[in-house]
C-alpha cells in the first residue's frame, strides 16, 4: 500500500511545484499550502504505514498491541502542520498587503526591489 501513497506524494509535489512556477502570487500561495501537505505525507510515508493502530500504550487489561504506528514521524509532522499553517497565514497576509501597496498580483510587476533597466555602475574613480 506504500506504493500507492508514494504515487500520491508525487502528485502532491508536482501540483505544488507547478503552482509555484506561476506568475500570480495567489497561485504561489496555494502552492505553498499544498507543498506543506506534500512534505508531511513524505515524512509520514517514509516512516512506514501501519493501519489504524495509534501509537498509544494501552494501560488496560488488553495490553499493548504487537504492532503500532510509528510515533516518531507523527511527532515531527504534528508541529510541522502548525508551523506551516502559521507560515501560510503569514504569506497570505503578506500577499494581501502587497496587493494593497502595489495594486498587482503579478510577480513580474513587482519591481520594488529589482527595478527594470538598472544603471551600470560608474566607471570613473
Amino acid at each position: 500500500m506504500e506504493t500507492y501513497m508514494i504515487l500520491l506524494v508525487g502528485v502532491f509535489f508536482s501540483v505544488a511545484v507547478y503552482l509555484f512556477l506561476s506568475r500570480h502570487i495567489i497561485r504561489i500561495l496555494l502552492g505553498a499550502a499544498i507543498l506543506g501537505n506534500a512534505v508531511n505525507l513524505l515524512i509520514f510515508t517514509s516512516g512506514r504505514l501501519t493501519r489504524e493502530v495509534p501509537p498509544i500504550i494501552a494501560t488496560g487489561p488488553t495490553g499493548t498491541p504487537e504492532t503500532m504506528a510509528n510515533p516518531l514521524p507523527q511527532a515531527l509532522i504534528l508541529t510541522a502542520i502548525v508551523i506551516s499553517f502559521s507560515f501560510f497565514a503569514f504569506l497570505l497576509v503578506l500577499t494581501y498587503r502587497t496587493y494593497q501597496e502595489l495594486d498587482t498580483d503579478d510577480t513580474d510587476e513587482m519591481r520594488f526591489a529589482e527595478p527594470r533597466g538598472q544603471q551600470m555602475p560608474p566607471l570613473e574613480y
Binding site: P54, I56, T59, L78, T79, I81, V82
Partner: peptide
C-alpha cells in the same frame, strides 16, 4: 495518555 494535546486543543 489519549489522542490530544496542546496543539490540537489550541487549534
Amino acid at each position: 495518555n489519549e489522542p490530544g494535546g496542546g496543539f490540537i486543543g489550541g487549534l
